[in-house]
Design a protein around this nucleic acid. Structure first.
Length: 592
RNA sequence: GGGGCCGUAGUUCAAUUUGGUUAGAGCACCGCCCUGUCACGGCGGAAGUUGCGGGUUCGAGUCCCGUCGGCCCCGCCA
């Protein structure tokens, strides 16, 4: 009988019924237990671990006892049942073992920079430098397999809903607005550059104009922006989708069907049942101090500006008179906390640029806190009408200009949830944030800019653009948020050239500039464009949520580090003078 | 561009608070012992420019200054 040269079975496959058969297994030496006589090797491949036994009477015994862990080796031998007292219930193959007769080293391993079999912490620099070893480790290996299965499920679900998958160019043109582009110099056209797409935005809209109706793509996106734990530098993947003849609610329904199916497929956590809550942007900012609220806990922010408009409490009244706001977060069960708890919260607020943190606590012996006396009974009574005080609760006040105050309150709300451990465990809480403003005022440039996507349809259409104050105009622009993570932005698009010119004009673009920058798309809209809209949930973030990881790099096979370097491949790297010459590029080193 | 935290053996950490003998320990590595382990066990060994440079001091891993690197955050992310 001739066996396959490398394996007849995988290392996760053998069970009791295989006993008696001769098998060949290949894999990595996961662990080695050398008893001087009998030698045990845990052999690991992608599918599992099988215990290989080498008895001292075998010729291979000495060579086997010298094997380094992580050496790739092939064993041939007989499957035997383990005696009842040596069965290992922790292994799927633990009822049997393979008694090795022959052994062949397929790939020897040097001494490891870090252990593969243990899940001990290792510095990320070393993990990234030896990413191929890191990917062998159980946790990362499982995450990457999960990612593969999630993407396969997404593809299947999208197809079932009538979507088709498309590819769009990677070498395209730079566009204004948005993040910094990655540029690729052109050899044929000196001084000109391609740009890597920040998203296939215009292409997917063109596909709608081309009549394809329902588009999706697992699309690579490239943005030259600084990283965060939940934002990979350089490149990331989106489930990019676009639909024709739809309203906002049609897009929501598709995404809700997708996520309500996808998340339970890969997790036993509870998932918000569709329809997901719709929260207007203005409400989200007021109630949660954020456009990506974490709904796994309460602590909703309450506006009490009106109470202080004519109150005696001068500290807050002065803020209100100056056009500012006063809001509070009611927090249950903090009255008994030590002074240091409140001091640390105040320090937290000041770090964020706040003036300070006023607070009240409701104890058995009455209302206490630094402002309790100064506030006055009348003001307290009016506050209690707005927020019924709970025994043991604390109220934390922030009074400031609105943009400052709401940011601080939002961060404070998250911080309190961390400190008090308030998040509902094992839950995915989805919501839609809707009615984003079309424009906002940019303090730095002192002009009106698009607040999100310049291709969004303004609510009210052309009439809104011509009659309303730009900062009051809302857009058919939405985000989907899960557990405080922004999964995606989307919009019903502006498919009408006349509205498009006007929308860009408000943001300071002449018709000529629009023709120049978005000529292809404007031209397309002149030849029969269907109403359309879409969204683009981040694949990496979806997998991060499903893998319950805090960092995006744990769900990406070959991520760059925080400074956008690939430590394994050594990117970015210098190029030769010949390459530069061919691209008509002369380097201009930064001044030191 | 700015802020916070962290750099000690291949690796994970200790010694830094209060400067003071020869910088310790687990895992990995090397040698010896061990025939039923599954995180095998036992004995021994090797392994360090304390990121780098400068300063203070009789004396610096420890204090000061600078610099490099990493992670997290702010800015930025239509």
């Amino acid at each position: 009988m001739t066996l396959h040269p490398y394996r007849t079975h995988t290392c996760g496959e053998l069970r009791l019924p295989h006993a008696g058969s001769t098998v060949r297994l290949s894999g990595w030496v996961h662990r080695k237990r050398d008893h001087g006589g009998v030698l045990f090797i845990d052999l690991r491949d992608n599918d599992g671990i099988t215990q290989v036994v080498i008895t001292p009477d075998r010729a291979i015994h000495d060579a086997a006892s010298d094997l380094h862990v992580e050496t790739v080796v092939c064993f041939t031998g007989q499957v035997v049942p383990r005696t009842p007292d040596t069965v290992n219930p922790k292994l799927s193959t633990g009822a049997v073992e393979v008694v090795a007769e022959t052994m062949q080293v397929l790939g020897s391993a040097d001494i490891l920079p870090f252990p593969v079999a243990d899940d001990t912490q290792v510095s990320e620099t070393i993990r990234l430098t030896y990413r191929f070893l890191d990917l062998r480790r159980q946790r990362l290996h499982a995450n990457i397999i999960l990612r593969s299965r999630v993407i396969a499920s997404i593809r299947r679900r999208m197809m079932e809903m009538g979507f088709h998958e498309f590819q769009t160019p990677i070498l395209t043109s730079s566009s204004p607005e948005g993040a910094r582009d990655y540029l690729v110099p052109s050899r044929l056209y000196p001084g000109k550059f391609y740009a890597l797409p920040q998203a296939p935005q215009q292409f997917k809209q063109l596909l709608m104009v081309a009549g394809f109706d329902r588009y999706f793509q697992i699309a690579p996106c490239f943005r030259d922006e600084d990283s965060r734990a939940d934002r990979s530098p350089g490149e990331f993947y989106q489930l990019d989708l676009e639909m024709s003849f739809v309203e906002q609610e049609d897009v929501f329904r598709v995404v809700e069907v997708l996520f309500a199916g996808l998340f339970p497929e890969f997790s036993d956590w509870s998932v918000t049942p569709p329809p997901f809550p719709r929260i207007p942007y203005a409400d989200a900012m007021r109630r949660y101090g954020s456009d990506k609220p974490d709904l796994r806990f309460g602590l909703e922010i309450v506006d009490v500006t009106g109470v202080f408009r004519d109150a005696e409490f001068i500290a807050f009244r002065r803020v209100v008179d100056a056009g500012g706001i006063v809001r509070l977060i009611p927090v249950p069960d903090v009255a008994g906390r030590p002074r240091s708890f409140f001091d640390s919260l105040e320090a937290f607020v000041k770090e964020l640029g706040g003036q300070g943190l006023a607070y009240l606590v409701f104890t058995d012996s009455g209302v206490k806190g630094p402002i309790a006396r100064a506030l006055g009974a009348d003001t307290l009574a009016r506050l209690s009408d707005a927020v019924p005080p709970q025994p043991g609760a604390g109220w934390f006040f922030v009074a400031d200009e609105e943009p400052v105050a709401r940011t601080i309150l939002g961060r404070l709300r998250l911080h309190l949830a961390d400190l008090l451990d308030l998040r509902t465990p094992n839950a995915y809480r989805f919501c839609w944030i809707v009615d984003f403003p079309m424009y906002e005022f940019d303090d730095e440039q002192q002009r009106i800019v698009f607040s999100h996507n310049p291709f969004s349809m303004p609510q009210g259409g052309l009439e809104a653009l011509t009659t309303q104050s730009p900062l009051d105009i809302l857009a058919y622009q939405y985000d989907i948020v899960c557990n405080g993570v922004e999964l995606s932005s989307g919009a019903i698009r502006n498919h009408r050239p006349d509205i498009m010119y006007r929308a860009f004009e408000i943001a300071g673009y002449s018709n000529e500039e629009v023709d120049q920058k978005f000529g292809g798309m404007i031209r397309a809209f002149r030849y029969g464009a269907p109403p359309h809209g879409g969204i683009a949930p981040g694949i990496d973030r979806i997998v991060m949520l499903l893998a319950n990881e805090e960092n995006l790099r744990e769900v990406i096979a070959f991520p760059m580090n925080q400074n956008a370097q690939d430590l394994l491949m050594g990117a970015p790297s210098p190029v030769t003078e010949e390459q530069l010459r061919a691209l008509h590029i002369q380097l201009r080193q930064p001044n030191s």
